[in-house]
Amino acid sequence: MHFTKPSPPSDDKRWRIVEATMRRHGYDPYALIETLHSVQQTFGYLETEALQYVAKALRVPLSKVYGVATFYHFFTLKPQGEHTCVVCMGTACYIKGAPHVVSAISEKYQVQPGETTSDGKLSLLTARCIGACGLAPAVVFDGEVAGKVTPEEALERIGRWTAQ
């Protein structure tokens, strides 16, 4: 049976980036993870339509695609909030009080680690060592690393986002 390449779920130009990734790997089923990386990097998360499309294009069973996408915590099936705050919960940061930072944010904004506030403004995430152990506890605010962060400082930085 001849295999015809499925067309992307929408005519969004960004699908070309994803197609390029798959082409580079010869549409080989082995390229599943690389392709999911490409989708997530391009669209920010993995939509159901995207998973269906990738499954067809790479000829990987649907359940397997879903299994892979949910096995790896780097992938997310839901869109992220407008702002992200990643608290390092690696050993060094844990010892130096990172849990207090997490619980302060969690309480004030009613958001569990790994989730986004209901207004879609803030995603609270945790990481395991971001390489700044020397300045523990470390927090990444919208991609910017900050060291020796106290709960008050963290709330203050986030407060600036939500005030806008």
Binding site: L62, S63, K64, Y66, G67, T70, F71
Partner: peptide, 17 residues
């Protein structure tokens, strides 16, 4: 069938869950 999630949260799923 396949398995989604990992660890204690693993679950068998059909197609895209």
């Amino acid at each position: 069938w396949d398995v989604m999630g990992r660890g204690i949260d693993s679950r068998v799923i059909t197609d895209l869950n």
